[in-house]
Each structure stands twice: as C-alpha cells, then as structure tokens.
Design a protein around this nucleic acid. Structure first.
Lengths: 103, 103
DNA sequence: CGCCTAGTTCGAAGCATCTAGAACTATAAT
DNA sequence: ATTATAGTTCTAGATGCTTCGAACTAGGCG
C-alpha cells in the first residue's frame, strides 16, 4: 500500500477545506480526531461502509485537514492542527465547537 | 416579487453553512458583505450570469448566512452577523480572514 | 506459502450542484 | 400605458458528490 500524498501547508485552499468540513460524516470524523490523537480508520465510528469511509478520509486528506500514516496494516489518521492553525487561524476550533454544540 | 424566506437562528445547520461558504463565488460575496453593509445584488461583482448569482444568493440565504430584503426594484443583501455569531461563534470571522489572506 | 486483517481502488447508481439563457414578476420612471 | 430596471424562476446540460459492493493491495501470522 503506497503512502498517500498530502498537500503542503501553502497548498491548502479555503473552499476545499470548507467543503471537506461540510459533510456530516466528515464533521464527525474531525470531532473524533480533535484532541490530537491518532486513530486507526477502523476505529472511527461512522454510519457508512468501509469504502465510503475510505473516500471521506481521502477527501479530508486531500483538503489538508488530516494526515495519514501507515503502521503495519493499519492507517493512523490525525488532524493537521498546527498547519491548519497557521493557515486558517481559529477555523478548526470554531467548526469543532459548532459541531459539538449541535450538529 | 415575494419576500424570500429565511431560516430561524435555531434552524441553522453547520454542514449547510460550511457548504454555503465552500464555493469561491459565494466566499467572495461574503467577503464583500463583511463589514455589515447592505449591498444590492447587482452591485456584487461575480464572474457569473445574473441567474447564477441569484442562485448563489439563494444558497447563502437558505443556509442562513445572509438576509435579503426588498427595496424598490432592488434586493439588499447583508450578512446575518449576530445570528451566526450566536450560533457558531467566531466562524464567520475566521472564514473571512482566511479568504482575505489567500483565496 | 496460505490466510487473515486493514484499507484502497474500481465501477456504477442516484442525486445534488453549478452554470447559463429564456421567460417571468415586480417596481419605478417617462 | 409603455418601457426600463432588478431579480427570480424554469429548464436543461455538464459536472461532481455520496454511496455501496466487488475486486484489489499490503502487511502480519501460523
């Protein structure tokens, strides 16, 4: 399994980031990752099939919201907190707060 | 021309708001409205046709991002700053800041 | 090696989005 | 009343998104 590519911090595009965050399933994933922990794909709870979950993780990764690294047969996903904060200060915090209050 | 309907503050949904903000044309409109001014549709600069602009304004309005009121033959559009701030604190500010820096 | 586990990728269906032109509505001005 | 102005709505096409199952890839284990 080849290592997936991640956009550089400079390459992050706001419309793309917002679109990545605009889906309920992906918003839940982001909330689950908030706190900085690395989570294996399979441990993410989402009401979708494995392939759909993989697709959503790809959308988040391509937008630069998450990072994925291989660990054995698993893929560990985490938020790109520092990079997002550097490029769009406060955004992720507001979104997660808003999502936690009422999705 | 009948008055368009606006969702109540309670009815605002984060995924819908984020989706409304995830389009470059709409993001530009929101930036243009930031500051609190009311702007007539025709004075908004957007590289799209009149009907497409009308569509984008409807998406923003339906998501609860903007408010529209009639004034003669014109429609004045403005941001729902207070309501958005009450429901999703800081969000609009972060988005506008991010958009201004680099769209 | 053969098998299991963990994810990805492919193919396809169904639905939504963005876009524009044409037709329409409503207000204002002549 | 006629005409002009400002937007909306309808229709339609092209594209994109979400979803799933099936097939595939890669690493770990017996």
């Amino acid at each position: 399994m080849r290592v997936p590519s991640h956009p550089s911090t400079d390459a992050l595009r706001l419309p793309e980031v917002l679109h990545a965050l605009s889906d309920p399933v992906r918003l839940e994933i982001v909330c689950a990752l908030d706190g900085g922990s690395e989570v294996a794909c399979g441990h993410l709870e989402a009401p979708v099939s494995k392939s759909t979950l993989s697709h959503h993780l790809k959308v988040l990764r391509d937008a630069g919201v998450t990072r994925t690294r291989a660990d054995g047969t698993q893929r560990l996903v985490s938020l790109r907190l520092e990079e997002l904060e550097a490029r769009f200060p406060g955004l992720l915090g507001c979104v997660v707060d808003g999502a936690r209050r009422a999705i």
